[in-house]
């Protein structure tokens, strides 16, 4: 494997966003890119990252390899990069280590680190292609604020999507609260748009603890996409350049 990423910062942000959910995981490398899929310890949430080969330049992966990496270790090494550094990831066939090289944009400094790999026996889950009943795009900072605000009142949030808009509501010991968003287009600042694409009304309840955790990815993308259908996990997607993505799935609460 040899994969050069223009922004070391991108991988750093991804790792920062997921490392409280998952600790050790395989980075599956093949000629289409670098993918990661892992469940959190409680098996309630699933992280799925795809960095497509087009996100790298150049990208070369001659044989499929799984790089088992402890994310705390990876985070420590990625913190050694400067914010504008270019990152090249390298691994041999049947590797013991993954090699990370940081170059400063003006190329005067080159730093190099090896991280020991681990054998991780990870269960891979098949995620069915789903036509969701509601697809909501909204500013990622807005979603983060809603989740944090409602978590002050309750441990779970009901998300209801109708023709009227999307309503986030909660009920707790001190009282209740809700935030409703309607479709909204801002021509000057499209990152502030709220887009609601609905084929059928949806109402589901989710644990806010996980949603707040997912929102650590807000720095990766100005917009977040929420996809919901009744009785299936919520998909929270942060889109990255070149069709790469960071996705989180969260099982709904049941029997309300």
């Amino acid at each position: 494997l040899e994969a050069r990423l223009e922004q070391a910062n991108l991988l750093k942000k991804v790792v920062d966003a997921i490392k409280d959910l998952v600790q050790d995981c395989n980075f599956d490398c093949n000629d289409s890119g670098i993918a990661l899929q892992a469940m959190d310890n409680s098996h309630v949430a699933l992280v799925s990252m795809m960095l497509k080969s087009e996100s790298f330049s150049p990208f070369r992966c001659d044989r499929n390899i799984a790089l088992g990496i402890n994310l705390t270790s990876l985070q420590k090494v990625l913190r050694c990069a400067n914010s504008e550094d270019i990152l090249t990831l390298k691994a041999e066939d049947a590797p013991d280590v993954v090699n990370l090289v940081f170059e400063s944009a003006d190329s005067d400094r080159l730093s190099e680190y090896d991280i020991k790999l681990m054998d991780i026996d990870q269960e891979h889950l098949g995620i069915p292609e789903t036509e969701y009943a509601a697809n909501i795009s909204m500013p990622s900072a807005e979603f983060q604020k809603i989740c944090r605000d409602l978590m002050a009142l309750s441990e779970s949030v009901a998300i209801e999507c109708t023709k009227e808009g999307v309503k986030f509501s909660c009920n707790g010991d001190i009282g209740s609260g809700s935030v409703t968003l309607r479709s909204h287009t801002n021509v000057d600042k499209p990152e502030n748009n709220v887009e609601i694409d609905l084929t059928e009304p949806v109402a589901l309840t989710f644990s806010l603890k996980y949603l707040v955790n997912f929102c650590k990815a807000s720095g990766l993308s100005g917009q977040v996409k929420l996809c919901l259908s009744n009785e299936v996990p919520l998909l929270v997607e942060y889109g990255l350049a070149s069709n790469s993505y960071l996705r989180f799935y969260l099982a709904p609460k049941i029997g309300d």
């Binding site: 469940m39 949430a45 996990p233 609460k253 049941i254």
Partner: peptide
């Protein structure tokens, strides 16, 4: 209170 189900009841191994 609603209960929390696991993700594996939705996504199968494989």
């Amino acid at each position: 209170k609603p209960g929390q189900g696991g993700i594996m009841s939705f996504f199968k191994k494989g």
